[in-house]
């Protein structure tokens, strides 16, 4: 973990409520996809945990949804402004478990961390299938980015206004055989993937956090055989350890 200042290069809307911010700074602590950073927003007490959407050299991409006052404030930040970030937080996805042909399943603002994951898996020359789920056509983002990485990509929308009608588990790609899955999205989606998936896989969870680095136990949840801190022992948990009773 490291605390350092990042300079905002761009901060633009991808959809009505999802923004993509590119920042320049010391990315050395970010060791893999599925990790997050904790952003200090002036005027707010707690930091905001935001997943890493992409890293290239010293450029970090954060793709976030404006869900409350803090992220709303964040969407107003201009180029050249500096942000205080804690980087290198969370365990991230385990790439060694991908097998021959993994599938990535993202829902809504759970899509961004899968982009960096797709890049890292493509570097291993693996064929990747991707399903991106959204509520409606106007909320769709990053399809092209996954396709440019060479991923076979299918989009689902709950109202059928774009791509396959339904949820990520209704996608044609989801029914094919895969060696492993990686997923991130809202809780109902994660549960559906858990119940309907044929293969093993891992899930990235979201939780309200105090510190983001394992000190306060604010985001601790029960897992099989004990507890895990979503911020430090997660946010990625393996299928076999998950309990849904939390």
């Amino acid at each position: 973990m490291k605390e350092s200042l990042f300079k905002i290069i761009t901060n633009k809307a991808l959809t009505g409520s999802v923004y993509e911010m590119n920042l320049q700074g010391d990315t050395s602590e970010i060791t893999g996809p599925g990790q997050f950073v904790n952003v200090r927003i002036p005027g707010f007490y707690l930091r905001r945990p935001i997943s890493v959407a992409f890293v290239q050299n010293d450029i970090l991409t954060l793709t976030y949804k404006t869900v409350g006052k803090g992220t709303m404030e964040m969407s107003g930040f201009r180029e050249e402004e500096e942000l205080d970030l804690l980087t290198g937080l969370g365990n991230g996805y385990d790439l060694s478990r991908a097998g021959e042909h993994p599938i990535l399943l993202g829902g809504g603002v759970g899509v961004p961390p899968l982009l960096y994951l797709a890049k890292k898996l493509r570097e291993k020359k693996l064929p990747i299938d991707v399903v991106l789920g959204f509520n409606t056509a106007s909320e769709v983002f990053y399809r092209k980015e996954f396709e440019l990485l060479g991923c076979r990509t299918e989009v689902t929308t709950a109202d059928g206004s774009y791509g396959t009608k339904g949820f990520v588990t209704d996608a044609a790609l989801f029914r094919e055989n895969h060696s492993y899955f990686y997923t991130c999205g809202p809780l109902p989606m994660l549960k559906a993937v858990y119940e309907k998936s044929a293969s093993d896989g891992e899930f990235s969870f979201e939780e309200r956090m105090g510190c983001g680095f394992g000190a306060c136990m604010g985001c601790s949840v029960k897992v099989k055989g004990g507890c895990k801190r979503i911020c430090k022992d997660g946010p990625v948990l393996r299928k076999e350890e998950i309990l849904w009773e939390n």
Binding site: F44, Y45, L46, G70, E207, R208, M209, G210, C216, M217, G218, C219, S220, V221, K222, C227, N246
Partner: peptide, 23 residues
């Protein structure tokens, strides 16, 4: 002690609320 169920954290103006529950 497992402590309390999540969410255990809430933000406030110039502060926070926690209900970790002595985990």
């Amino acid at each position: 002690r497992y402590g309390n169920p999540v969410p255990r954290i809430a933000e406030c103006t110039a502060g926070m609320i926690n209900a970790v529950g002595l985990q």
